[in-house]
Simulated assay, not measured.
Amino acid sequence: MRVYLDNNATTMLDPEAYEAMKPFLTEKYGNPNSLHQFGSETHPALRGALDELYTAINAKDSDDIIITSCATESNNWVIKSTYFDKIATGEKSRIITTAVEHPAIAATCQFLKNFGVKLTILDVNEEGLITPEQLREAMGDDVALVSVMLANNETGMIFPIKELAKIAHEWGAPFHTDAVQALGKIPVNVQDLDVDFLSFSAHKFHGPKGIGGLYIKDSQKLSPLLHGGEHMGGRRSGTLDVAGIVGMARALTMSNKFLDFENSHVRRLRDKLENALLEIDDVSVVGSKDRRVPNTILASIKGVEGEAMLWDLNRAGIAASTGSACASEALESNPIMEAIGADKDLAHTALRLSLSRFNTEEEIDYAIGEIKKAVKRLRAISSTFAH
């Protein structure tokens, strides 16, 4: 049996999204910016897809949703344009973020330190979250931007974005959230969250790879990251991927239709898998179930290196992931585990399991059996686990 439990990395394409995309891959392939019929015949589908995206996140007509290649681009755009628009001009000097952001945020912020940007990185608690009080204490008149993810890609923990955005706005600072791991799993309403910028990637909610977006509240100023054309109202140059946009919009619409299913069926299967893991001695899971997105488990299995576990699971046909990675000479520990204060040994034992609405009960039962077999085998040969 093959079981895919790495849905926080990427997801299968929704069959309805695939069907919606097909005409724009083979028949209606014209450039939307061309004046001829081949280009103009794509316009109704583009308008419909953008309307779907606006509806899916409850954006207003006065807002912008700009199509990008992925959330990594969207994140880079917000962070770097904050530097261009506010920090390089001397108006502001500081960006606030957290210790558990995706590398698309963390690495971009570290890069901008070379240009004089000041960073405040908020530490997280043992559940991997920050509190509104932490942000309030860190704020000041010099803050150009606050960027905090909506849901963590490894733990699945959901941050109190509405409260955090309110605090940032009290100081006149715009607020950005990387919502990649939230869309399609929990309701995301930009009016309720009151964020200024929100990034997303289609392939995380059963859309195609290579397409994403950036929500911009009230179409506010944000210098373009890419230059060379007047696409998307001059905000993002590059020929539009009509098939990708149509597929992304349909996938998000479908994912929103299945939110109740996600919170019931997927959550039940996740909890079944998690409870089975916790029956094993010396296994822990990061974060409370009710504060996580419904599909995610980040477990620590004492005495079992994450990479070794992945090897055994892969041989059994099960796809999972871990923060550990084979470097040239050393095994790197999971940075999220380190951020929440786990000791060095446990930080090497992380196993992330992330489900989707396409997983079945049979698959979860099979995964439970294979994980238990792998733990038994690996602990038997472990030099660090007390038998």
Rank of each mutant, 00 (worst) to 15 (best):
A59Y: 03
T155R: 05
V285P: 01
F205W: 09
G303K: 04
L240M: 13
L225H: 06
S219Q: 12
A330W: 10
K86G: 03
G172S: 11
A367Q: 06
F261S: 13
K185V: 07
V304G: 01
G172V: 08
Q110R: 08
E274I: 05
Q110C: 03
I130W: 03
P208V: 15
H43K: 03
E279S: 11
R352E: 04
R2G: 05
N256R: 07
R268V: 13
V246W: 01
A347H: 00
G287W: 04
T11P: 00
N263A: 05
A327F: 04
E362H: 05
E262S: 12
R379H: 14
N125W: 09
S40E: 13
A251L: 14
F159Q: 15
D85C: 05
L198Q: 06
G317C: 11
A299K: 01
R377Q: 13
D178H: 10
N359V: 12
I211W: 04
M248S: 04
G156L: 10
N33M: 12
E329T: 14
R94V: 11
E305K: 05
T253L: 04
T253D: 11
E19L: 15
L183P: 02
K86Y: 10
E230V: 15
L252V: 15
D290S: 12
E137H: 08
K166A: 14
V146S: 04
V78L: 00
Y215W: 15
C70H: 08
M21D: 05
D142V: 14
F175A: 09
V180K: 01
L135K: 04
I340L: 05
I186R: 08
K372D: 03
Y215N: 12
K372C: 07
S93N: 10
L277G: 07
M149V: 13
Q181Y: 11
P294T: 09
V188Y: 05
A276W: 08
V148W: 01
V124D: 01
C326S: 02
L278Y: 11
D345A: 13
A342D: 04
S333N: 03
A339P: 00
I371V: 11
E137W: 08
P44C: 06
D142T: 15
R2T: 14
D61S: 11
